[in-house]
């Protein structure tokens, strides 16, 4: 019996440690794939923020900054998406996501929407450094491409 004590104690210690570090919320249960794709979305939002502030007239038009943000959007659309959208990470299977399971049933449509987003980002990259009016005109198609996927495959809040 005594020889099991050390492992038992360390097991108990580990359990306490998990309980302490995991905290009360379920946030720790969110799979890395979900965190990764949500981080990608935040990177989209951050770079869109640079462009949007100029489009709204809240920030002065800066061709170089606009081009940089637009190029980042293009780069984000080129990330290999597969591992971040692992099967079984839909809103019915796990907490912490609003992704609908139908996303995995409509692969060709998801691909088409992804391609449309890449084209809209490319449109912004071609427009952003030109002038403010071009940038403003490119916001609509970009928003439409984002929304197309959210409309189809994201559950309401």
């Amino acid at each position: 019996m005594p020889k099991f004590r050390a492992p038992l104690l360390s097991l108990a210690g580990a359990a306490v440690a998990i309980a302490v570090f995991a905290g009360p919320g379920a946030a720790q249960d969110v799979p890395a794939a979900v965190k990764a794709r949500q981080s990608q979305m935040q990177l989209y939002a951050f770079n869109l923020g640079t462009l949007g502030a100029m489009a709204k007239g809240e920030a002065e038009y800066d061709a170089e900054a606009a081009q940089g943000a637009a190029d980042n959007l293009v780069a984000l659309t080129s990330l290999a998406a597969g591992p971040m959208w692992a099967p079984g990470t839909d809103d019915m299977s796990i907490d912490g996501t609003r992704t609908l399971a139908t996303m995995w049933d409509n692969f060709p449509d998801v691909m088409a929407k992804g391609t449309a987003l890449a084209e809209a980002a490319g449109g912004m990259a071609a427009a952003a450094g030109t002038d403010l009016a071009s940038l403003q005109a490119a916001m609509g198609p970009l928003g439409g491409a984002c929304s197309a996927c959210h409309k189809a495959y994201r559950a309401p809040e």
Binding site: L48, M139, G143, G144, C146
Partner: peptide, 8 residues
């Protein structure tokens, strides 16, 4: 116009 919220 674009559907973007202030948080994009």
């Amino acid at each position: 116009t674009s559907g973007f919220t202030p948080e994009y």
